[in-house]
Design a protein around this nucleic acid. Structure first.
Lengths: 351, 351
DNA sequence: TTTAACTGATTAAACGTTTAAGCAATAAGT
DNA sequence: ACTTATTGCTTAAACGTTTAATCAGTTAAA
């Protein structure tokens, strides 16, 4: 065992033991490194005596040997690492999802690398490249707008990935998500049935299809119920200035007297910004204005009345993502698959 | 839950293209692999002709060569990867911090692996072991209770780490955090000065020193202002049953008539649970009860009045963690250091 | 008794890099 | 003209694993 003395500032013991490798274990056990490898990976297909097994295990234990996964990965061409790419890990939607995916990945022996790209195409591509350079076994991606070409290149490099949250119409790829059009339709219908017909729909200026779908679902519901669609009630805000835009628009719609009777927020961040403004303006919910929001964040429960919202099946999305990715890795011939999960309308007291 | 499956005709990769390696580039450029390595790492210390440089760069470009970081890591013994270990990445406190750390790490060319341990010692040790097996260059850790011994072992293995959020009194280690005692003192004093003297302090049943410090700060402030300390106002909840315990205790303290005039929540999760209960019970804030909370989450802004809270300097914590870790990696002789950053009291309208 | 089969181990090549050392060829110094 | 430097490149050894191939014994079969 090689020991080297360093001037450690850590604690009392300044003798640092060089990392023990398979070679050290072999020497200690008095066998070849191959034998050590066979034993420690307990490969039933190889022939090793009970005696050797014992010697190796003892040596490994005594030396506190831990296999170097980097070396293992280089040889086996598997890193047991997934890359998770989201818009922003600080957004509760993604951090909750990340947690679920982390657990599901750990469950099958894999580790997660996480990256946030802020909906920026360049950061998006950079991060995916970084993940690939690190030889991740697969990727779980919430794709940004206009990433079809780039993702096609990744497909050609035979790196398996699954798309979550968003999808790309032009891309044949395994995708997991909800039916945004349908659930927004359902939500809108709920408002209409509660006799709210002057609904403002708050969304982003965006190219992301799943968000455009929500708008479509909203319009479809109005049409289906013969409620006229007014452009002045289709609010689109700049994602980089949510608070400012929401503030301005809500003030316009709600003061001095509301010209609408409901607000439908198409994302959690929009909703939180909107709720803040509603509190500030002192608008009575649900008396004056009904509120329906997307996703599920703790703020909805702290608002003066529990906020009605559309809840995505985060757990299923995360587990499906990992499961399907694993399948693609194990069998590269796996067919592409689009999985649509059911989102649910949670009716609080705000609508 | 599973709604509909659409199968595509073709699998992901019918033709598997082998990854291009440095060898391929060398062959294409008509030079040795050493030359390729020297060029691509543009090492000024080595001698290479302009001609070779051009040939190599062209070849690399044409083949779309990307160096295999796993192989590089094995050789250089550096992975440019940090492990971040938190209690729960889905907790906004940690996810915001993770985002900041991710960015700071990327800024110096490093990638993050994130793990959540749920305050569980076994998961904690497992995850750190996993990180070490993957040869991370360093760790950023929010340590769980009673992890001193384990962390000492890690120190002996010469894996640099910095502690965030929490600290371990018995451990000599680089630590970044706030002065919990002091800022809780300040917060309590703020309540007292606003003539609230019957304060309930909501905390966890815990061994975590930083949380115990908050309780100490609270008591110190009461003493300093000659307010009697009542045990019935020191509420300790089970972290696994926050909603249940908060509900029960607040009901007891607040109904039918409040026996207290303020609530001080010692964490964001406790506060959110508490706010929910306050809404449910219809308690008037700040008229009947003052509220002060720890940390900063969006829910505080959506409550009927903006919640006064103690804001930690997340950005500084994250940046310091990465900066100091980098220093420790570059120079293993770096002395350990305890950094205390300033938390601020944000006065809303709830207190 | 000879050969074949089996058993339990070892040797060595490979994974894709980096980098010290070596080797020609040319330039410079005396 | 002869040594010495310098330049530009290559060779080959490592990093810590896995694993195919091989080898020496032993046992079973002929």
């Amino acid at each position: 065992m090689l020991k080297r003395l360093i001037f450690s500032t850590f604690g009392a013991n300044n003798v640092v033991v060089k990392k023990v490798s398979i070679k050290d274990v072999a020497k200690k056990a008095g066998v070849s490194i191959a034998s050590v490898s066979y034993v420690l990976n307990n490969r039933k297909d190889s022939r090793i005596s009970e005696d050797t097994i014992k010697k190796v295990k003892n040596a490994a234990q005594e030396l506190n040997y831990r296999p170097n996964k980097i070396a293992k990965s280089l040889k086996t061409q598997r890193t047991f690492t997934f890359g998770l790419l989201v818009a922003d890990i600080a957004n509760p939607y993604f951090s909750q999802l990340a947690r679920i995916i982390e657990d599901a990945a750990k469950h099958i022996g894999c580790t997660l690398i996480i990256g946030s790209c802020d909906e920026d195409k360049e950061k998006f591509e950079d991060l995916i490249n970084t993940f690939c350079d690190r030889q991740v076994d697969g990727l779980i991606i919430a794709p940004v707008a206009n990433s079809a070409n780039f993702l096609e290149r990744i497909q050609k490099q035979a790196i398996p990935f699954v798309l979550i949250d968003r999808y790309i119409p032009s891309l044949r790829a395994t995708t997991i998500g909800i039916d945004n059009t349908e659930v927004t339709f359902k939500g809108t219908e709920h408002l209409i049935k509660n006799n709210r017909k002057k609904i403002a729909f708050i969304s982003y200026i965006t190219d992301l299809q799943h968000l455009l779908d929500r708008e479509i679902g909203f319009k479809n519901a109005l049409k289906a119920h013969k409620v006229p669609i007014k452009n002045s009630r289709l609010i689109k805000v700049d994602k980089d200035f949510i608070d400012r835009d929401i503030d301005k628009n809500l003030k316009q719609l709600l003061t001095p007297n509301p010209v609408i009777d409901a607000l439908f927020f198409s994302s959690n961040k929009l909703a939180v910004a909107g709720l803040k403004t509603l509190v500030k303006l002192g608008i009575e919910v649900p008396e004056k204005i009904g509120v329906l929001a997307f996703d599920e964040v703790e703020a909805y429960k702290v608002f003066k009345v529990p906020v009605s919202h559309i809840k995505q099946p985060l757990y299923e999305i995360g587990v499906q993502a990992v499961t399907q990715l694993e399948k693609m890795i194990k069998d590269p011939q796996t067919k592409f698959q689009k999985t649509t999960l059911e989102a649910s309308l949670i009716v609080g007291a705000s609508s």
